Amino acid sequence: MAPRLFGLLRERKRELKRGRTRRAAARHARAHARRQHLAERVRAELAEELPDEDLGEDLAEYLELYERGGRPPCEEAELLQTVRDAVDRIERGH
């Protein structure tokens, strides 16, 4: 009788563990979706603020590939700082 009971307890433990794993996966998926939504919202706000710029999907890549000298230094510095601020907002999650 005791071995059967221990087998049932072991199986119940496995079921509970799988349930926790599913909940953790669901929680992770929701967090990922929130981050994606925030990134899309920040990019949309940036596109409104800078309508003449072709920023693409990856703002960090835009900063890396940006070639200086195409505009007045003050304008250029403001543009780059605006994009950096947007990247920081996405990374912080705000």
Rank of each mutant, 00 (worst) to 15 (best):
D52T: 13
D54R: 08
C74Q: 10
E53C: 08
L50E: 02
L16A: 08
Q36R: 14
D58K: 07
V83D: 02
L79R: 07
D85S: 11
A39P: 13
A44C: 04
E76K: 08
Q36M: 07
P51G: 00
E49A: 14
D58E: 12
R27W: 15
R84Y: 11
P72F: 01
A31L: 15
E57D: 14
G7D: 06
D85N: 12
A47I: 06
A25R: 15
R12K: 08
D52C: 07
L55G: 05
A2P: 02
G70S: 05
R43G: 03
E64T: 13
G69E: 00
E76W: 08
I90G: 01
P73D: 00
A60H: 11
E48G: 04
L9D: 04
A86F: 06
D58N: 15
E64H: 11
H32L: 15
Q81P: 03
A26K: 13
R22W: 13
V87G: 01
E48K: 09
G7M: 01
Y62N: 01
D54A: 10
D85A: 12
E40N: 05
D85G: 09
L38G: 02
L16Q: 11
Q81Y: 14
H37I: 02
E57R: 14
E11D: 13
R35L: 13
E61L: 15
D58L: 06
L9N: 02
F6Q: 00
R41P: 03
Q81N: 09
